[in-house]
């Protein structure tokens, strides 16, 4: 049970000029794909294109056999939810109303609808912010609400998140990471760009690394987390000789993050069991 995704020689860019790709991979249910790479290597373009919201320069994206770029908007909204890097400034709704848009899903509602909103509010600890108007939220809070909206929208499908942890504090990183981890274990697919190597290492089952080499489009390498975050490899790739020579590479903080996130996943499932027991 779960969703399958396939990218077929997908190239992303603007005005027919590719900035990243081509890329061909199969993604199985339950995978967490971390997209890493230096600034300007085309991570955001790649994510928008594989979410089907930006025209591809070539290739296809298939989610359970359905071509995202040919699909109607409501069909795409059912297969995949996308969250942008920068929260919109033009929203006047309250946090709860924004998350209810996820339950609307292009007019083809989510099964469970409004009760999913309540569950996500609890999971992301948004209880105190739910009625606050969007413009009064901080950027990190807006980001959490936007991710919440996607969690409401996505039902055993694909979540594509552009830098979901960028403006979150440590505690909220753990809370959001645990919510994503829970989805992945239920058979969903998460594809997220993560600039924090520790978080990426803690979460990823696979890593896509965008390399800007020369004037052409960035090349994307499909790596195992062990390979991508091997201290020597990481330091060499990041081009920071300090880590390589002095520290022997980037300190392996991934496992520590991993423990914190697992603990939060455990407490989430315990509280769900409790709720189920009560009702």
């Amino acid at each position: 049970m779960g969703v399958n995704m396939r990218l077929e020689s997908l190239a992303a860019g603007y005005g027919g000029r590719p900035v990243v790709g081509p890329l061909t991979i199969d993604i199985r249910p339950g995978e967490f794909i971390a997209v890493i790479g230096s600034n300007g290597s085309g991570k955001s373009s790649l994510l928008r294109t594989l979410a089907g919201v930006q025209r591809a320069c070539g290739g296809r994206v298939l989610v359970d056999g359905c071509d995202l770029h040919q699909a109607t908007e409501p069909a795409r909204a059912q297969a995949l939810a996308y969250v942008d890097q920068h929260p919109s400034l033009a929203i006047h709704l309250s946090a709860r109303e924004v998350m209810e848009l996820g339950a609307w899903r292009g007019g083809h509602g989510v099964p469970g609808g409004i009760s999913r909103v309540e569950a996500v509010i609890d999971t992301l600890r948004l209880q105190d912010l739910a009625e606050a108007p969007w413009p009064e939220l901080s950027e990190g809070q807006q980001q959490r609400v936007a991710i919440g909206r996607a969690l409401v929208q996505e039902v055993s499908g694909v979540l594509v998140l552009d830098e979901p942890f960028a403006s979150l504090d440590t505690m909220m990183c753990v809370v959001v990471a645990a919510a994503l981890m829970e989805r992945v274990r239920g058979g969903s697919i998460v594809v997220a760009s993560i600039h924090d190597a520790c978080l990426a290492e803690a979460l990823a089952t696979r890593v896509l690394r965008a390399d800007r080499a020369g004037p052409g489009p960035s090349l994307v390498q499909d790596l195992s987390p062990e390979r991508a975050f091997d201290p020597t490899e990481f330091a060499r790739h990041a081009g920071v000789p300090f880590w390589e020579g002095v520290a022997g590479g980037q300190p392996r903080c991934g496992p520590d993050w991993r423990r914190a996130i697992e603990e939060q996943v455990g407490s989430l499932s315990r509280s769900r069991l409790q709720d189920a027991g009560v009702s």
């Binding site: 909204a77 109303e97 609307w104 007019g107």
Partner: peptide, 21 residues
Amino acid sequence: ATAVDALATGEAEARSLGVPV
């Protein structure tokens, strides 16, 4: 009405929410 509300989330997110932008 709801599609217009969703349009406020931005072009890419509105598309992914199912709005025929």
